[in-house]
Design a protein around this nucleic acid. Sequence first.
DNA 1: GATGAATGAGAATTCATTCAT
DNA 2: AATGAATGAATTCTCATTCAT
Lengths: 207, 207, 207, 207
Amino acid sequence: MNKRDAAETKARILSAAERLFSEVGFDKARVDDIAKEAGVNKALIYYYFESKDEILETLFSSLVEDAKRMLVESVEKTSDVLNEDNYKALFDVYIRFIMEKRKILKVAIAESVKESSSISVVMELGNLIINAEIESIRKACESKGLNYPEDKKEILVMEFFTGLMPFICFALFEDQWESYYHMSEKELCEYFYKAFKKTHLAAHLPK
Amino acid sequence: MNKRDAAETKARILSAAERLFSEVGFDKARVDDIAKEAGVNKALIYYYFESKDEILETLFSSLVEDAKRMLVESVEKTSDVLNEDNYKALFDVYIRFIMEKRKILKVAIAESVKESSSISVVMELGNLIINAEIESIRKACESKGLNYPEDKKEILVMEFFTGLMPFICFALFEDQWESYYHMSEKELCEYFYKAFKKTHLAAHLPK
Amino acid sequence: MNKRDAAETKARILSAAERLFSEVGFDKARVDDIAKEAGVNKALIYYYFESKDEILETLFSSLVEDAKRMLVESVEKTSDVLNEDNYKALFDVYIRFIMEKRKILKVAIAESVKESSSISVVMELGNLIINAEIESIRKACESKGLNYPEDKKEILVMEFFTGLMPFICFALFEDQWESYYHMSEKELCEYFYKAFKKTHLAAHLPK
Amino acid sequence: MNKRDAAETKARILSAAERLFSEVGFDKARVDDIAKEAGVNKALIYYYFESKDEILETLFSSLVEDAKRMLVESVEKTSDVLNEDNYKALFDVYIRFIMEKRKILKVAIAESVKESSSISVVMELGNLIINAEIESIRKACESKGLNYPEDKKEILVMEFFTGLMPFICFALFEDQWESYYHMSEKELCEYFYKAFKKTHLAAHLPK
DNA sequence: GATGAATGAGAATTCATTCAT
DNA sequence: AATGAATGAATTCTCATTCAT
């Protein structure tokens, strides 16, 4: 087999692992089942990865890398985030990213919440995103001649807990909401945008 | 030993379990370690509980019961939530509750996020809290002669994702924030209130 | 079950392990088989021992402890080792000890020979025995007015390689000798005593 | 690649295997590591050898062949072994051989000691060597008009346990002695010769 | 000859749970 | 109520060996 196949096999393993981890949790997911789902021999998993932990680390690394890429791209595209149309476009980019990554995000949250995990992925990822966000807003303010808010910590807290977290929680619970409140993804997403605009976005926009 | 001791033993087991579950996660927590932490014989745990799962269920039930009690009490005490001073008092009650329950909340989130968990505690708890909240606001609106918003679903979504979730995430990540951004709990909490007021609360208050 | 049974169970495990280790070697011996041989559940082995390694360490410790006990007793009993009758008695004690311990000695040799084993049991045991032996001889010399040999290192080397090692090798290969050269244990043992007397003992006895 | 390289590759594999077997024992040595140490692909090992066992058998065969060659040569060179100078020369030949082969000898001992090994290499090798030795002595006796000892078994036992075994044990434990008793190889070797002369050799020499 | 990928059959260790007292 | 001992079913990881190229 050539490198092409090897990479594909590795990807299949990662994808199966991601699915299982998000379904039953990292600890309950069995390597045996990952192998079955990926259609490979169990030992082959250990040929590509040191341990079950390393699979998770690889998935987390990809998540962070993809987030970085997404942020760079979205910063390039967006000019003035404080304009509502632009913000909606950005919102869509974020929602798409977060929904695409929902599986691994669930695992990331579940693992990050454990007190034993030193530097959690969620903190790393969060830091990345809120700083990019803050930067965008700062630029938008400057270009408009508005003076950008003062206290760095205040804005960090606001971005993280009332900006990022609702997003992430949307990805986390969207499917349960669908069945619990009988709403479609589209409907939910629209309501979520409304809510987000009224709360977080409103706090940013000049009154 | 008498019933007093029995109840206390059971409580010790629950408390040890809660601690361990939140530290390493439900699946990684070993019954052996719970016994050690609680200072009881492992078999005794099975005298009081059917299984490890039942311990978790008991903890989750307590959480829900305590939330109900807290909600009833806070509803009784608070008259007009749309007044900022009153809201601050309510905010404090919520923060206190959520911080007191942070350990089991971490476990609840981690478990609820798994796609295999049918009706997650978080949805149950969330439903409870946002409905109480909505009720409070409705009453406040009525007493002020303001007409209460229209769409039930819209308000549910807003309360859940931009009201409750930031709170819960605060409980989840407060400790990691402390060490990551070098802030004290008090400082963080103050910033969080500011952010919450500017976003979620602002959306409720009449302009 | 009471402590009596627990100790007996542990002993059964150790005995089964000793048998298997000596038969197929430590590495090839399976914990499954130890359990089967001992008539206990495999998990019970891990209730009493941390790991397969710990079983071996326990066996080695017992070997060393038993050797110490044997040496103390034999020193007490024997007065003048340089008298042939006394020496024969001592020889018998040694032979009996070494034959009784042949199983674990085989394992000890096999493990000690590995370059990865830091301080091998064989060196530890050897040091113990040759020092006891040297002490006996020194005392016998003194009581006879003979002056005891000079160079400590010289005597250490002689005791270890031409005294102890033939003994240990006797325990190691006695059974293979029986079938290879068609000799009974008794016959072999007699020849061995003759050989030992002519070589090692002769070197000690005054000409 | 040509035959020269093939032979060299095979030799590299054998040498790496010998090193690893002696370091961690045959069972713990992994084919993967042999490949790494030899700088070849793992599958290539199976091109040259049927199995891991066959590698060991090849090493053991070489040991026996080399022993035979060494014995033939030393018999040719040595005339009268009962003369001390000649004996010292022979001793040096043996010591050199045994030290050169120490790695594989360690493996041989470890494997031979297992009760499951039918005809152990050590017995085979031992038989070879002690018979050559006995033959030398017999010739020396005859040439001197001394009558050679009667009982074949007696002399076999003596040669094996008090002649060969100390030698082999010297190869086995020399390095551990160096570090345990802080002696150099040269020093140890000299003491060993003294001890050997006083015990085994003395038994052969006419009084 | 040589290699990266793949596999089957283990093997040690774990762990929730139960039993006997 | 309480405990030490015991168990069955996993579960992660290993490793000699083979395959396809």
